[in-house]
Design a protein around this nucleic acid. Structure first.
Lengths: 147, 147
DNA sequence: CTCTATGCAAAACCTTTGCATAGAA
DNA sequence: TTCTATGCAAAGGTTTTGCATAGAG
């Protein structure tokens, strides 16, 4: 299984783009954090380690990473974009607490199968999907004394 | 089964708000279009029939409609907000063509059940969910000669 | 050398808000 | 009268782009 870096380098080569220190650094930072990060948060982390990298470069690098298939843009509740790792991660959905914002990754093969059959039944060629479940998590439920 | 207007009037009363010609008109326009509309598109339609209604009023009215449970904000691909009818419509998910943008409504009870059990298994109190499936529809598939 | 990457600033976009005035109850 | 609703313009927040300069191949 090739490393994420190897995949990105392959992608750069195919697209006839160039290597750069900044891209290397941004990718390192991203790959080392498993959380879903906004561009602002990501830029904050990047700048802590590499103070001279601009927001714009982080923006453009994350676009490239998305294109290369190494990450995915998440749009929870239609709010601002967050990025999540894709490579080496089973496809998963999200269970989100509307009170504290915590996010649990859900892997459900039954739903995946069912989704597949919806595509087939409608003659679609699948390219992706996303599912978010919203509710109140056990902790917030206690805090708020909901049933 | 009370009409949508009746429900909205009830909502207005409970919230101690007031009736207005503009709200009436906006709701009429919205209820007569089954498509998922952006605020801009909706405002365009509204203005065709009622040229003096402002974007802001459409915006605020749609927020009220959402609150009242008559419509729902859709965030497809995290892009701009669209509004869809809720009242009298079974909960459904969306199958979206990434080429032409067409959108098919999907009702799948198996998936609904499975979602319910995910909430229960994680101790969540459900408040809602959404699922979008993306792919290439049969028409675009032919146009592009994909397999 | 030639073409891409970067950083800055500014633009673009959509969504939301403040405020003075109009209108409902 | 006393609220709320409206329209306008302007602010906010995020995402995108133009352009001059730096840097990779």
């Amino acid at each position: 299984m090739p490393s994420e870096k190897a995949i990105f380098n392959q992608f750069i080569r195919e697209k006839k783009l160039k290597h750069s220190k900044q891209r290397e650094n941004i990718i390192d930072v991203f790959l080392n954090i498993e959380k879903h990060m906004t561009l602002d948060e990501l830029h904050g982390e990047v700048r802590r380690q590499y103070p001279d990298i601009s927001f714009t470069t982080v923006y453009r690098t994350m676009k490239l990473l998305s294109e290369s298939g190494l990450c995915r843009e998440l749009h929870i509740r239609g709010g601002i974009t967050r990025y999540e790792h894709v490579y080496g991660h089973t496809h998963h959905d999200h269970l989100i607490c509307t009170v504290c914002g915590s996010c649990i990754e859900i892997i459900d093969l039954d739903i995946e199968k069912q989704q597949e059959s919806i595509f087939v039944a409608n003659g679609f060629i699948p390219s992706g999907h996303n599912m978010e479940l919203y509710g109140v998590c056990p902790v917030c439920r206690k805090d708020r004394d909901i049933q």
